[in-house]
Design a protein around this nucleic acid. Structure first.
Lengths: 207, 207
DNA sequence: TTGCCCATGTAATTTGTTACATGATTTA
DNA sequence: TAAATCATGTAACAAATTACATGGGCAA
């Protein structure tokens, strides 16, 4: 058995686990295919690493014995290389996935909100336009999520990825609602500034 | 217009703009204070850089003339240093904030969802427990958001940060709803697997 | 007087991106 | 046959973290 006892953890960056995860589904695939899949699916709730990093992680994981690669054109460097998960890889991944202590709170990097936060540096119409743009883009993302869902179909093996995509679909819908509420808040704020009189904050926004 | 030969777009990492943003509010502050503020507020919709990186960004920004620092104990290395935004800094920041093209879609790194996506590697009770833990943690985060809102108060100067926090409050509420929906989906999936027959997948898992 | 919070910084390292180089295979 | 796409990789660099070093002020 491999050395994973006494509390010493397999310590890999999240990206490595994500790549390993991509390989935990039936079928072998190339680094290139992994990248495309990450772009069309994983990125909605996690993140899509650069292709060069995927290759780097694959090499590391192979060194650890978590994946194996098979060359089609034998011995040729730069030949097409398909990767598959090993038993050790599957075990390590399952161990990681079961360990919630590793998973901190979700990290959100929201460019729009950062700009709203800096609203005092812009004028109100600009802010509203930014929110509207965001909604437009979100609708596009939502369509992409649904496309990915269609790709997954109803096959049993893809049930969990489908669940994640369903979550993502709802998340995008929520994002649209949040943007609506934000527009309302902006309107209220602007109103209270163009006709001042009652103190800074008083009227409850409601929504 | 100003492309990149002499106009030369200010090309700084998002972190630099976030730090500059922290300094765009009234008052001077130390790197240490910036860090605490980022941890208690900015992190909810953007992200909190490590303290060492904040110092690094401050140095870079000072080199660019976007901020100035004042030492209290003069000439002493390692003395307390308060930073303030310069006019050039304010202008650069305003320019960046108005430029929506820079802002890609929000990036989400959701550890729980990654694990749900890998649900085929865990057992259903474990998955449910993970979602429940997540909800518990989210409630904690929500409380922290509200605390930050209380800190901001109703002062006019903090109106926009407050708006961002209000967004974040709603976002956390939505996150709780999403987790509820996910629990429902998990239950449905499990039911369809323990008593197979109709609908989605058909072949009993195997694995 | 011990320990904690304030406060600043360096060094080493990891993580991740962009740009580049190379060539095979498919499609118009 | 030209192009786009598939496919793999290296090199240079940028971004960011962790670990460490240093010291002042204050409260138990």
């Amino acid at each position: 058995m491999t050395s994973r006892q006494n509390g010493k953890k397999q310590d890999l960056p999240p990206t490595a686990w994500a790549v390993l995860g991509l390989l935990s589904f039936p079928g072998q695939r190339t680094g290139y295919e992994l990248k495309k899949w990450a772009d069309s699916s994983l990125r909605f709730f996690y993140w899509a690493p650069a292709i060069s990093q995927i290759y780097a992680e694959l090499r590391r994981l192979e060194g650890l014995g978590h994946v194996v690669s098979s060359r089609s054109g034998p011995e040729e460097a730069r030949a097409k290389r398909r990767y598959a998960l090993t038993e050790s890889g599957r075990a390590a991944l399952a161990g990681w996935a079961a360990d919630t202590s590793e998973a901190g709170p979700p990290v959100l990097k929201h460019g729009l909100l950062l700009r709203i936060w800096l609203g005092h540096l812009a004028d109100p119409p600009r802010l509203r336009a930014m929110v509207a743009d965001h909604q437009e883009r979100t609708r596009g993302e939502l369509a992409a999520v649904r496309e990915a869902m269609a790709q997954a179909g109803d096959v049993d093996a893809w049930a969990f990825p489908l669940l994640a995509l369903r979550w993502s679909e709802r998340q995008h819908l929520a994002e649209l609602d949040l943007a609506d509420a934000l527009l309302d808040d902006l309107a209220v704020l602007e109103a209270s500034r163009t006709r001042p009189g009652q103190g800074a904050g008083d009227t409850p926004t409601g929504r």
